[in-house]
């Protein structure tokens, strides 16, 4: 019986298609309500969840939006006490947003095994981070507390070169300065590659 209720109805819909009425279902993703009718707002596949009574549409073309849960690249522009300010660069490092979209990273959103007194201990001005958006409006609150989130590029505080990842540390290929930073799971440059380029 339970399996029967869980079934989903799937069909292609286009913007403006009436999918149901508010007495029957709740409006899910890409569905809006108008005069009691639930209407699709995108071209996609209709999903009717008969258990939770939600009708939604999975679009054929997913647009990337600055919404909670989205991952973006940011450039750290300032650090002060327990807060770092950052400029959102975009969803990738190729199509960089030129207009200023700001984000704030609080120290509580930086994962660490020990207690951090300030963001300076892990984040530095000039770092490029891959972070999760956790708020709806600007300035966006950002978080590094996700397996996908990471410091992606960092500059050496001593000589300004791009540091490379060597196991759990970031090491400067020019001056040899090293430091332990976290999280660097998706750091872009390997130490060996940078060292090889210098030779």
């Amino acid at each position: 019986m339970r399996e029967k209720i869980d079934q989903e109805i799937r069909k292609i819909v286009s913007p403006g298609d009436i999918l149901g009425v508010v007495e029957e279902f709740f409006a899910g993703e890409n569905v809006y309500e108008r005069n009691g009718f639930l209407i699709s707002s995108v071209a996609g596949i209709e999903h009717v969840d008969l258990r939770d009574r939600i009708v939604s549409v999975t679009p054929f073309r997913e647009l990337r939006k600055f919404v909670p849960g989205a991952f973006v690249y940011v450039l750290v522009t300032g650090t002060r006490g327990d807060i770092a300010t950052a400029r959102v660069l975009g969803f990738d490092l190729v199509n960089i947003y030129r207009n200023n979209i700001f984000g704030i990273l609080h120290v509580s959103h930086i994962p660490s095994e020990r207690r951090l007194r300030s963001v300076d201990e892990m984040i530095r001005v000039g770092d490029i981070l891959y972070v999760k958006i956790v708020s709806r409006t600007q300035p966006f609150f950002l978080s590094l507390r996700s397996p996908k989130a990471s410091i992606t590029v960092s500059l050496c505080p001593r000589c300004g070169s791009i540091m490379g990842r060597l196991k759990e540390k970031l090491v400067c290929p020019s001056c040899g300065y090293s430091e332990e930073r976290k999280p660097i799971t998706h750091y872009l440059y390997k130490y060996s590659e940078l060292r090889g380029r210098q030779r």
């Binding site: 890409n30 209407i39 995108v42 647009l63």
Partner: peptide, 9 residues
């Protein structure tokens, strides 16, 4: 609609 931009109709 092809670009995936949400539309009322």
């Amino acid at each position: 609609a092809d670009a995936g931009i949400p539309m009322r109709d």
